[in-house]
């Protein structure tokens, strides 16, 4: 098993890229490190959408799990006083998994836009609950205190950055292993023809349920990381449909080709946004909308398919 993981080229490349990023973090200015953290956190959620997208499913409401993860971090601090990185991540993932498992029983019966819209509706129900409930912070949300590591509270953001990189690496490796397994490979098969999968004796509903829970876990962990990176959670920046919309946008922009793509896409997205707000403050939506159309028209494989024009990256696909 360990051998299989270490011999996977995508895994090696991901590890290398993230290690380089961690090293670079020691030298980069704080705002760049911040943007990177946001990008990586969002990238993990996009990785969750990628797992669904490979089966042709898209959730317009993954802000639900992103938000649950973020609020798990905030509330576990608020109620239990937790501030440890590992515990926070675990809490975020756990909450998302439980919710995803429960809602999965409903969502696994839906496809296409119905799946997308019902996901959206669920996320907006959570949004409504959060906004309305004082005990859950209402519209203001909570601030999240500095993250500690086994009791150690380091100066600056570098340690948190490195920790987030480590988690993203772990998540990417796990997803890569999943996608390479029989269960993961069935993805395309299920997208192509569910009837045939049923008649091969396998439950499509179960396969989709599993994917959905994996995807929720990733988005939950991502929300947790975002809460720690941002130091703040509130319904508008964690759960609102625009949050889900951004995740969908990055998924399409990055392309489904590799587990590395979501992180690349999400980091590009963060910087794109930072610069766009400086250069053309009123044209952000124009840029996003235009990019979306151009990608759908001319680059269906997303940014990753551009990288795949380079032989080195192309070889990863057949690995």
């Amino acid at each position: 098993m360990l051998h299989a993981i270490l011999s996977d080229k995508t895994v090696r490349l991901t590890a290398l890229a993230l290690l380089a990023l961690a090293a670079a973090g020691l030298m980069l200015p704080a705002w760049v490190v911040n943007n990177m953290m946001f990008g990586l956190a969002r990238g993990a959620a996009v990785l969750g959408l990628l797992v669904l997208w490979r089966t042709g499913l898209m959730s317009f409401g993954h802000g639900l799990y992103f938000g649950l993860g973020a609020y798990a971090v905030a509330l576990s601090e608020h109620w239990l006083g937790l501030s440890d990185f590992a515990l926070r991540i675990l809490a975020a993932i756990l909450v998302a998994v439980v919710a995803g498992f429960a809602l999965g029983f409903i969502l696994r019966r839906y496809r296409d836009i119905f799946f997308a819209m019902l996901s959206l509706a669920f996320s907006m129900v959570l949004y409504g609950i959060l906004v309305k409930t004082e005990a859950l912070g209402s519209t203001d949300g909570f601030s999240v205190s500095q993250t500690t590591f086994l009791g150690w509270a380091p100066e600056g953001k570098q340690v948190l950055f490195t920790a987030i990189i480590t988690v993203c690496l772990a998540l990417a490796v796990l997803v890569q292993m999943y996608l390479r397994s029989t269960l993961g490979r069935l993805t395309t098969a299920i997208r192509d023809n569910e009837i045939r999968v049923e008649y091969l004796g396998y439950s499509v509903a179960r396969a989709i349920h599993i994917k959905y829970v994996i995807s929720a876990a990733l988005a939950g962990g991502a929300g947790g990381m975002m809460a720690m990176a941002l130091g703040q959670v509130d319904p508008d920046s964690m759960v609102y449909w625009t949050v889900s919309g951004e995740l969908v946008f990055i998924t399409i922009m990055a392309g489904p080709g590799s587990v590395l793509a979501p992180f690349i896409g999400a980091i590009i997205f963060e910087f794109l946004r930072t610069y766009a707000f400086e250069i053309a403050p009123h044209a952000w939506q124009l840029i996003v909308g235009g990019t979306l159309l151009l990608i759908i028209f001319f680059l269906p494989g997303g940014i990753w398919s551009l990288l795949e024009r380079i032989p080195f990256f192309r070889r990863l696909r057949h690995d």
């Binding site: 299989a4 390479r180 397994s181 029989t182 490979r185 069935l186 999968v197 091969l200 004796g201 396998y202």
Partner: peptide, 14 residues
Amino acid sequence: ALARRKGGALLRPI
């Protein structure tokens, strides 16, 4: 792969 699967076989490469 689906016909011959048993137990954890679904988690192994195809």
